[in-house]
Amino acid sequence: MSETPIVQVRHLQKQFGAGCPHCLDKESVYLEKNYCTSCGTVHAVRDVSFDLYPGEVLGIVGESGSGKSTMLQGLYFDGDMTAGEVYINQPGLAGHNVLTLSSQQKRYIRNNVYGMVYQNPVHGLKMNFSSIGNIAEKMIAAGNRHVGSMEKRGEELLKNVHIPLRRRKEEPQNFSGGMQQRVQIAKALSNNPPILFLDEVTTGLDLSVQASVLDLIKQIQRELQISMVVVSHDLAVIRMLADRSIVMLNGEIIENGLTDQILEDPQHEYTQQLVYSLL
């Protein structure tokens, strides 16, 4: 594994509300979890820093409302962050805090460097456009103007995610949830992005479909050496996919380390509770 991280996240901060002197301190008595009882501000992400290395899978666990998704949205530019820095070690981007780039540059990163799989396929797909069109959209956005090559790549990807080619021109709205999720994965992979974000990809899928989606992600990761950030509240998913994990609670990182280590020997009280409640 290479020594230089592909993504560096530093002091990421997201708050809903203006904040007040009472909630500046993390240990303040005015704070009820991450909610300030004095001014009503919610501190969704508090001072989060981590590195993502090339080819590694980083798991992010935490209960609902712990700030996992908000942080991921911030990284993918779906939502603005209040403060913090993100550096991507890619040609032309190194040394720039990508959060401060223009929206065109952010769009370039989304189309060329990032891939995103949302929990709900409605957010990642155009439900009334053909599956192959959905996959092509990302390639078009990245500047491809050759129908033949996009069609070929789309078919290749659909085959990879086990969607029968005869259904390639069908709209994802006719597909089952698991199939929609697989189309989303194919779309996210279309430009061979070095970085892939997965937000609760298996939540809401039945067990056998979950297993096949996870299998697929694992296989893609092995073959393409993509760096991934996997957000999930499901420890089983994290255990299967992630090399290294971060545990979040109330917007903060409370524990991080090798996934096995965290699961075998949790240090923080909350992590212990989380691990022991695993069936």
Partner: peptide, 18 residues
């Protein structure tokens, strides 16, 4: 404003597919 016309291209791509 952002010169983002992938949607217009996508509409044409869909026609070619169909």
């Amino acid at each position: 404003a952002e010169d983002d016309y992938s949607g217009a291209w996508l509409l044409l791509f869909e026609q070619i597919m169909k």
